[in-house]
């Protein structure tokens, strides 16, 4: 039945486009609201007539993301907002990898301020890359700035929704931070949350 619907859709859309004399490729947004595991989607940059291009992941890799996947809807619900339950991780940018390495080197030398400068530079390039927040939270933890460390880690949690491995790591980090801050019950809670992933 779905096949039939889609066939009709395609036919009607083709007619409409032909009538409008439109020769450009219309990328129909698709949406997945099922709470399932991450999709593997073969995608290309979305290019519209205003020449706005959004880089998309070529493949799903277990790496942090550099840019956001485009969110699109396939159903008849385009007039309503679009909210995915899962955001696929994207391929990490080489620039971000370089900055993460740089920050790591600084951290190892004990130069945490410089590490933070590098990480914030990485954050501006890839503000949705969980590794940036993980590393940044760690620097605050080492500096014993527990409040900020926890908040940065919570920010990490908010951007890795639907990625169980990452959620597990972030909640364990939060447990560790809370423990270091002397918040035993909070740490226990965070560990319990981590164990769900």
């Amino acid at each position: 039945m779905k096949l039939t619907t889609n066939t009709y859709r395609i036919a009607i859309l083709s007619i409409a486009l032909a009538m409008a004399g439109c020769s450009s490729t219309l990328v129909v947004p698709t949406e997945d609201r099922n709470n399932t595991s991450p999709r593997v989607e073969q995608t290309k940059p979305v290019v519209n007539d205003r020449a706005i291009a959004i880089p998309l992941p070529e493949e799903t890799v277990n790496q942090s993301q550099q840019s956001t996947a485009p969110l699109t809807t396939e159903s008849n619900a385009i007039s309503v907002p679009i909210s995915p339950s899962v955001i696929e991780p994207a391929q990490q940018n080489t620039a971000v990898i370089a900055l993460l390495n740089e920050a790591n080197n600084y951290s190892r030398q004990g130069d945490l301020r410089s590490a933070q400068t590098s990480l914030q530079r990485a954050q501006r390039i890839a503000p949705r890359d969980p590794q940036v927040y993980y590393a940044l939270a760690n620097t605050h933890l080492t500096l014993q700035d527990y409040v900020l460390a926890e908040q940065v880690a919570l920010k990490g949690v908010s951007i890795v929704q639907g990625q169980p491995d990452q959620l597990n790591q972030f909640w364990n980090l939060i447990a560790f931070i809370r423990e270091a801050a002397g918040n035993t019950s909070g740490a226990k809670q965070a560990r319990e949350t981590a164990s769900r992933y």
Partner: peptide
């Protein structure tokens, strides 16, 4: 916004939410 190179807003659905 029409002149900016935009990235979509991604409202990832948190765990406590169901659609």
């Amino acid at each position: 916004m029409g002149t900016e190179t935009l990235e979509p807003f991604v409202a990832a659905s948190p765990e406590g939410i169901e659609y």
